[in-house]
């Protein structure tokens, strides 16, 4: 099965009203070319799940700036002033989730779990509207799983079967987003033949990856 695709082919995955999750922490570990393809696709009303909304000109930030997002679920929006502006103006819905909770909700979505119990947010506005459970005398919030129709990932290296290796702090949300979407597309800097990545070094197994876009378009 050939998983290698061009940026044009990536565009065909996107449609209006879709839920999309993207890896990255302030743009580091975000597949910028895939985000550009999403912009090119000219779809609207996206529900975006990402750690943060990065900056005006990088990471997933341009999706916000160009009004493609109907709702964003993130832990931090402070570095992209446009997110706050659209939120206050009522143009976009923002659901703020503690970073560890956001990570666990995505993990739960990919792991077949009905949610997770976390003490984070107990006694704060985060607990509003949520079920609270007491386990062994400690209070926890029931936080529900998150999934998306498409996950856009960034890795340093892939083999042609999609086995991935991440680089430095660019790993962040990418590995567990690979389990939590119907279609998983990864942007890589480097593509190698199957067998060239030692199975011990694989960080995300290729069975989770549907499509691979190689940066620069080369193979």
């Amino acid at each position: 099965m050939n998983k290698i695709i061009s940026l044009d082919e990536v565009t065909s995955f996107f449609k209006d009203g879709m839920s999309i999750m993207a890896g990255g922490f302030m743009g580091v570990g975000t597949p910028e070319d895939l985000v550009s393809a999403l912009l090119e696709a000219d779809v609207k009303d996206i529900t975006l799940i990402a750690n943060d909304t990065a900056f005006i000109e990088s990471g997933v930030g341009p999706l916000i700036v160009n009004h493609r997002v109907k709702k964003v679920i993130a832990s931090h929006i402070g570095t992209n002033p446009e997110t706050g502006r659209q939120m206050i103006a009522g143009e976009m819905e923002v659901e703020l989730v503690p970073q560890g909770t956001l990570a666990e909700r995505v993990r739960a979505g990919g792991a077949g779990l009905g949610g997770i119990l976390t003490p984070t947010g107990v006694g704060t506005v985060v607990e509003e509207g949520k079920e609270k459970l007491t386990v062994d005398g400690r209070e926890y919030l029931l936080e529900k799983p998150l999934r998306a129709e498409v996950a856009l990932l960034k890795a340093y290296k892939a083999d042609k079967s999609g086995n991935l290796v991440y680089h430095r702090s660019a790993r962040n949300f990418n590995p567990f987003m690979a389990l939590a979407a119907d279609h998983v597309i990864v942007q890589v800097e480097k593509l190698v033949e199957v067998g060239e990545i030692d199975p011990d070094e694989v960080m995300t197994p290729g069975i989770l990856i549907d499509k691979i876009y190689v940066q620069g378009g080369s193979q």
């Binding site: 832990s75 931090h76 929006i77 402070g78 703020l96 003490p119 984070t120 704060t124």
Partner: peptide, 15 residues
Amino acid sequence: KMVPGMGGAMDLVTG
């Protein structure tokens, strides 16, 4: 005024 989001702060103070 300022709604940047909690980032990791809520998890840090909890854990």
